[in-house]
């Protein structure tokens, strides 16, 4: 098992391999959170968020939420990919911790009005307007809820997304 910093520096075209990421533990999260706070390392951020998700430590929910919501102006493709991975990571953490606060955050995230209320100050070049950005964030939150395997998440998906 390589050191965590070496692990997240690899290119994973099909996403971070869960089996390998699961070799790391809560002892490695401090290193990952430090790298996440460094915008010079933004190319690693998507790998870091996926790995944090697979580690599944409840204490990382708040920093992940802060990462998703933080930032200003037009962000890079790498940063947007990482924020999207953050919503999946919350689903993975919920998978490991049925009482995780990630459940409420992801449930709220299924309403695009919630994203408006969160006053997100970043946007990307991909989306023509903030509504398209928020619709994409809702979709990604729904995928996170799916991957959690949580029955409460399933109920929320049904309640919020049924036509």
């Amino acid at each position: 098992t390589p050191p965590i910093t070496t692990f997240v520096q690899q290119l994973f075209p099909h996403g971070v391999p869960q089996a390998q990421a699961s070799n790391y533990s809560s002892a490695d999260t401090a290193v990952l959170l430090t790298l996440l706070a460094d915008s010079k390392q933004q190319d690693l951020h998507a790998n870091i968020l996926e790995t944090l998700g697979y580690i599944g430590d409840e204490t990382t929910v708040a920093p992940i939420v802060a990462y998703i919501q933080g930032g200003r102006g037009v962000i890079s493709a790498a940063q947007f990919r990482a924020k999207s991975s953050g919503l999946l990571a919350l689903g993975y953490i919920l998978n490991r911790n049925p009482n995780s606060s990630a459940l409420l955050y992801l449930t709220d995230s299924l309403d695009h009005q919630t994203w408006q209320a969160r006053d997100i100050a970043w946007t990307t070049a991909f989306f023509p307007d903030l509504i398209s950005r928020d619709v994409q964030l809702v979709r990604q939150a729904a995928v996170g809820m799916t991957l959690s395997g949580s029955p409460q998440a399933a109920a929320a998906l049904k309640r919020k997304l049924s036509p």
Partner: peptide, 24 residues
């Protein structure tokens, strides 16, 4: 809403068999 159905099915599979088995 077939997308929602797909998501609910995947959620159930992961609930029953674990995320590890679902992904591998």
């Amino acid at each position: 809403n077939s997308m929602l159905d797909e998501m609910l099915k995947a959620n159930q599979t992961i609930n029953a068999h674990g995320l590890d088995n679902y992904q591998s």
